[in-house]
Simulated assay, not measured.
Amino acid sequence: MTRTKRFVIAGGGRVGLRTAENLTEQGHEVLLIEVDGDRVEELADAYLGPVIHGDATDQSILRQADLGDADAIAALTDETETNTEICLTAHYLEPSIRTLARSETATEPDHDEVVDATLLPQSLGGDHAADMLTGEGIRTLVYPTADLDIIEVTVAESAPVAGRRLDEVALPAGSLLISTADRDGLAGPETMLEASERYILAVESDVVDEVVNLFRG
């Protein structure tokens, strides 16, 4: 049975609201942070979870959200710089928390340590953000169509593929290992799938779960 998780969502606009709805539909707990007073009332009326009225870049507001008890925080406002700042502040207060930032561009290299995943582009919806939040060790790098994801997956110690060569692994039809996370070359039959290492795959939507099970166990 999947463990109930708790997520903090900063930004209660269209994407933030849909993300919260998707997570609660999956049985998870959410807490929303929204700076606009009128929007706070609308979010409260949606009965998705507690709503804090305030600026999520403010340390005092994030402390109210009890980040130590959260599995992840998603910064989903309309402003890329604001979302990055929220993740920076959250990481300062709770270094171990997972972070997701909605952005127009890829995360700057100097922010990689505080932004674990980036929702690109801004037009992507809350369904996708929820998938990224709940997929530990997995992040979607590109979401070009409804049928294909380019994902980055970390191999778990107990995963079926751990310690095996690619030509020893039966990946499902509709999936392709592209490279290791450092992208220094294309994967080939001799590519070793090492535990704790990250790999990039192209995966059709109907086999995502099967691929994840192979890499995560």
Results as ranks from 00 to 15, higher is better:
residue 120 L to H: 00
residue 187 A to D: 00
residue 57 T to A: 10
residue 177 L to F: 10
residue 29 E to M: 09
residue 138 I to Q: 09
residue 192 M to C: 05
residue 7 F to K: 02
residue 210 E to F: 09
residue 100 L to N: 02
residue 139 R to Y: 15
residue 168 E to L: 12
residue 129 A to C: 03
residue 160 P to A: 12
residue 130 A to D: 01
residue 112 D to P: 00
residue 68 G to W: 02
residue 99 T to S: 01
residue 172 P to V: 03
residue 5 K to G: 11
residue 111 H to I: 01
residue 80 T to D: 14
residue 107 T to S: 09
residue 138 I to S: 04
residue 38 D to Q: 15
residue 31 L to T: 13
residue 217 G to R: 02
residue 172 P to W: 04
residue 176 L to H: 12
residue 105 T to R: 11
residue 122 Q to D: 10
residue 89 T to Y: 00
residue 70 A to V: 09
residue 48 L to H: 07
residue 83 N to L: 06
residue 137 G to Q: 04
residue 139 R to I: 05
residue 213 N to K: 15
residue 148 L to D: 10
residue 96 S to F: 06
residue 137 G to S: 06
residue 157 E to S: 11
residue 85 E to W: 11
residue 189 P to M: 09
residue 179 S to V: 02
residue 80 T to G: 01
residue 188 G to Y: 09
residue 41 E to V: 15
residue 184 D to Q: 14
residue 63 R to V: 12
residue 36 D to E: 13
residue 154 T to I: 13
residue 109 P to F: 04
residue 215 F to Y: 07
residue 71 D to C: 03
residue 68 G to L: 03
residue 17 L to F: 13
residue 121 P to D: 00
residue 101 A to L: 01
residue 109 P to N: 05
residue 33 I to A: 04
residue 44 A to M: 13
residue 186 L to E: 11
residue 194 E to G: 06
residue 151 I to D: 05
residue 196 S to R: 12
residue 21 E to P: 00
residue 212 V to H: 11
residue 86 I to N: 01
residue 215 F to V: 01
residue 41 E to F: 12
residue 36 D to P: 04
residue 4 T to I: 14
residue 178 I to E: 04
residue 184 D to W: 06
residue 152 E to S: 08
residue 185 G to Y: 09
residue 110 D to Y: 15
residue 210 E to Y: 05
residue 103 S to M: 11
residue 165 R to E: 15
residue 210 E to R: 08
residue 195 A to Q: 03
residue 161 V to T: 08
residue 72 A to K: 01
residue 107 T to Y: 01
residue 132 M to K: 02
residue 197 E to P: 00
residue 17 L to I: 04
residue 94 E to P: 02
